[in-house]
Design a protein around this nucleic acid. Structure first.
Lengths: 335, 335
DNA sequence: TTTCAAAATGATAACGTTTACATTTACAAT
DNA sequence: ATTGTAAATGTAAACGTTATCATTTTGAAA
């Protein structure tokens, strides 16, 4: 592999000037610049990131941690992140926490050894100890959280207004004439799922609808058991006419159960999800849902990080994105 | 950040011995080893990968390129890769080609600048020029391809027997009594989709079933247009009783259309897919499919790479995995 | 005690950059 | 012609490791 030294020899210029060319320093004449670039091409020179990183202290690597890459939402965020950072010649290293605090810690350790210039992350469900994250932040490495944020002061973050998303989804069902709506809730360890639940409850309250304990269900483990649960619920409350699921997968699952119970969607029961995952467009009926703006979240998080990479002092800011209602076939169109 | 130098000062040992401790060299006494480790803990020492990589020429980084991380199959492979490599203290850097030759090239360039020790990749649909890949292989950097392999001599690879998978899926339909099966084909630029088509054709031939041009369709762009196409096809050939889709998403799409056309699955038409993506278990009916052994593919590819990382001379080998039939509700059970 | 090999440690030069500082060159102003 | 200043280039020391070679220590055998 050719190095800067070889270019220096070939052109007769010093190491410093050659280096300056690749860092497009202003204090190098156009003539020598061309000479260097020509030699570089001739020798098929590839800059050695490791050496540059070692010397400069800047690795040009950004570490990204998500719970699972195989998740429509997170991979959408990653796409947004890539769009911004690869333009700025940053290398991105993606790690998965698989919702494990230990794996998340391991990834962060790895990032520190690799001397990443910044971190973008969505914390795992399990994580309760933020000391390592705070240590990294203490070392003046900018960190931006997206979607799932830790309870830490002075943290930069981009999140979705999950409360609002749940609220507009529920409001949509109410506007469509639903009088008795139930909610399939997500893991209460995840704060965003709790906020969706709150949005659901408040939308009902604001419309003077009554909610009982029975109206919020945790399903998704065993389809035959869950089918029975729902069947009994429908017998107990025959007026149920709307379901708001905490996620699109949950809706697919519920729709499956409703099909088994031979309940017509949206005629008898209207169903709305959360996420706007690709498959919602390909199911029958197509699922109404709430778009999470994943790509935009990635773009914003990356931009926020970039600002802190350039600036000397780190500025913390919190951004909240508004979700968008997507009406398809599993709910009626409001008149 | 504490360095090896600080440990050296604190313990009074030379840089060399301290370094040896972290590379668990055999020629360092147990006593000094403990002393060094204690000092390391005290100073919260984190080895600097960049420096080590620069000096040793080994970055301990493996580059992985997949077309899309948001794809059940590829993310499954990545999980397999991670399992093997993170145990061996390798850092994994994942890039997406998004099926673009240019982005794939960019990722490879990036890998070279980062001095990756090895590459695991599945090439993009678009890629026709393998010169950069060959250049990397020429530099004695081991490369292992998975799933989608280039037409290159002396390449290590792990692939699925897509032909066999298509064959057993089709055979399953025939065993279930299907007399007229059609195939929803995938992009002919992707060789694995072509092999699936061949497997389909050969299974029919072997069972003395007749195939016409009409029996292989390319759908998936416009659902109302495709509904019309299928409606006309079913009118022309009322005996159609089986559909083999090149992928699970295609099946979801087809099932959606069959629902619109009010055709019963599997009573009137049996449907089988390819991939065993999570959602196939949550649809109604649950989709019969072919498992692609994605995690196992990742495990094997990573192991193959590891062997070549240790060995001085690179040994090329090709491994072919056998797919497994998964029978669910969209096909009948064979008697 | 001496001898010698093996085990353990040390000194030091790399690896390929960047960068502070020093030097040279170019060229306008005197 | 001389000076002064800015632009361009050069020198050399770092960055934190590893690896070669040299040196010391250890401890068993003679």
């Amino acid at each position: 592999m050719a190095s800067i030294k070889d270019i220096s020899k070939l052109t007769g210029l010093s190491l410093a000037t050659v280096s300056r060319v690749f860092n497009n320093s202003s204090l190098v004449s156009d003539k020598t610049k061309q000479k260097v670039l020509k030699a570089a091409k001739e020798l098929d020179y590839q800059p050695n990131m490791m050496a540059a990183a070692l010397r400069s202290g800047k690795s040009k690597i950004i570490g990204v941690i998500v719970p699972e890459i195989n998740n429509h939402f997170f991979s959408g965020v990653i796409n947004g992140i890539e769009k911004i950072l690869s333009d700025q010649n940053y290398h991105i290293i993606i790690s998965q926490s698989h919702e494990s605090e230990a794996l998340e810690k391991k990834a962060l350790q790895s990032f520190m050894q690799l001397n990443v210039d910044g971190v973008l992350m969505s914390i795992s469900k399990e994580t309760t100890d933020f000391s390592l994250i705070q240590k990294i932040m203490g070392q003046k490495i900018p960190v931006v959280f997206f979607d799932r944020t830790p309870s830490i002061d002075h943290a930069s973050s981009v999140v979705l207004d999950d409360y609002k998303g749940a609220f507009i989804a529920t409001q949509h069902l109410i506007d469509n004439g639903c009088k008795h709506i139930i909610h399939i809730a997500g893991d209460s360890k995840v704060s965003i799922f709790n906020r969706r639940r709150e949005g659901f409850i408040d939308a009902l309250k604001e419309n003077n609808q009554i909610i009982s304990e029975d109206d919020i269900l945790l399903l998704g483990t065993d389809i035959s058991a869950d089918t029975l649960i729902l069947k009994e619920l429908f017998q107990k409350y025959p007026l149920i006419d709307g379901i708001f699921g905490y996620g699109d997968e949950a809706c697919l699952y519920i729709i499956n159960i409703l099909n088994i119970l031979e309940i017509a969607i949206p005629q008898q029961i209207q169903v709305i999800g959360f996420g706007n995952i690709d498959f919602t467009e390909h199911t029958s009926p197509k699922i109404s849902t709430v778009d999470q703006k994943c790509t935009q979240m990635g773009l914003l998080a990356a931009e926020m990080l970039l600002k802190n990479l350039d600036n000397e002092q780190i500025i913390h800011s919190q951004q909240v994105l508004s979700p968008a209602l997507i009406v398809r076939e599993s709910t009626k169109s409001p008149n």
